[in-house]
Amino acid sequence: MTKKFEEGMRLMRRSGQDAEEGFSLLRQHAAEHLDELIAAFRAEEDHGVRCWLLELIGEARSPEALPILVEHLGHEDESFASWAFTGLQQLDTKEARIALYRHRANNAHN
């Protein structure tokens, strides 16, 4: 884990402007830290920080993010589902479009 990533995570766990600065720091380098973001998301217990981490995973716009985004696309927590949906749209690969199409098709019948 790099110092930049650790500092961003430390700040995100704080409140107010510190949290925003931490998010912004990580956002600028999301693609470089995708594996760390995914690991942090899986380990994090704070709901708000987890939402931000999933948003950052989508911001990475990396094909390696596809599995975790698809995993959370139909999540019961609307925040996770929404960030997964947005991340797949941003990824805009054939696989991401297929996942979004299937999700829409399955939800149209419910």
Rank of each mutant, 00 (worst) to 15 (best):
R61M: 15
W52A: 09
I98T: 10
E64R: 15
F85Y: 12
D77C: 02
G8P: 06
E21P: 00
G58Q: 11
L25G: 03
A65K: 13
R10W: 05
T86S: 03
R13P: 10
P67Q: 05
E78M: 05
E21C: 04
E44F: 09
R104T: 06
R97W: 05
A39F: 01
R97S: 04
S24M: 06
G8F: 07
E55K: 12
A40N: 05
V70N: 06
G87T: 01
L88G: 00
H75A: 14
F5S: 10
R13K: 15
T93E: 01
A108V: 04
Q90R: 14
G22A: 03
G16M: 06
I38S: 04
L73C: 09
H72Y: 15
E36A: 14
T86K: 07
D35R: 07
E44S: 05
R14P: 03
A30Y: 04
A81R: 08
E78A: 09
A40R: 03
L66D: 10
V49E: 04
L25I: 09
K4A: 14
L91Y: 03
V49F: 03
A43L: 05
D46N: 13
L88T: 00
L66C: 09
L56T: 03
N107P: 01
R50C: 06
E76T: 12
E64T: 08
E36Y: 01
H109F: 09
D92A: 12
A65F: 12
R10D: 09
E95T: 04
A108P: 02
E95Y: 02
I38F: 03
F80K: 01
A96L: 04
V70T: 14
F23Q: 01
Q28I: 04
D92W: 04
A30M: 02
A99G: 08
R50F: 01
A96I: 07
T86W: 07
A40I: 06
W83I: 01
A99N: 08
K3D: 14
M9F: 02
